[in-house]
Amino acid sequence: MILLENISKIYNHSSVALKNVNLKVEPKEFVTLVGTSGSGKTTMLKLLTREEDPTEGKIFLDGIDITDLPRSQLHHVRRRLGTVFQDYKLLPAQTAYENVAFAMEAAGRTDEEIQEDVPQSLDLVGLSDKINNFPHQLSGGEKQRVAIARSLVNRPDVILADEPTGNLDPINTWEIIKLLQKINDLGTTIILATHDKEIINNIDKRVIVLEKGEIISDKANGKYLV
């Protein structure tokens, strides 16, 4: 369970990214964060991974206050969160297999586990035939699938996806969304930040709307309304 308590993020007095946000996400939920760019979606995800520190408030992950952890201990939290980004953030000098394996190596898993889980995870995202390709040899949709494989290979509790389809064409977009839904069906919490109306109206899950750093709507079966 994720709990945000009175979270504010202020860069400076003229730039307030989040204002007094309170939010609770239950396990196995699929939550979509909606809002125009600058509304605070990305900041909220960055606070969850502690890429940024909140100006005020606390964030709990299964009862642990992650805002209180020293930076040297953040890897414990990050191994329980999978992250997917608009720009994929793959390691360019490593193959698809190695990119996924890196997350497991970093988490201290054994070689046997890695040899078993990495191909499985790449198979789940439909990339079994490209495991030895480097990122520059893959299309945008394929890169994003590698990123998703990497995010789920450590069996995280939550996957955070920040505009994962932002650089993709409609067909690839749907492939990725379907993939995220499948992962959610298997029991992983998903928090998806997007401003794509089509996606929001079609997945029919909880939708939280952010505007200028504040939650202005939170509905169980939300639609994109303007």
Binding site: H75, R78, T83, K89, L90, A106
Partner: peptide, 15 residues
């Protein structure tokens, strides 16, 4: 950037 990615994926600093 790669160093940042590695951190986000859960690697310790020494790793």
């Amino acid at each position: 950037e790669e160093i940042g990615i590695m951190r986000l994926v859960g690697a310790t600093r020494w790793f």
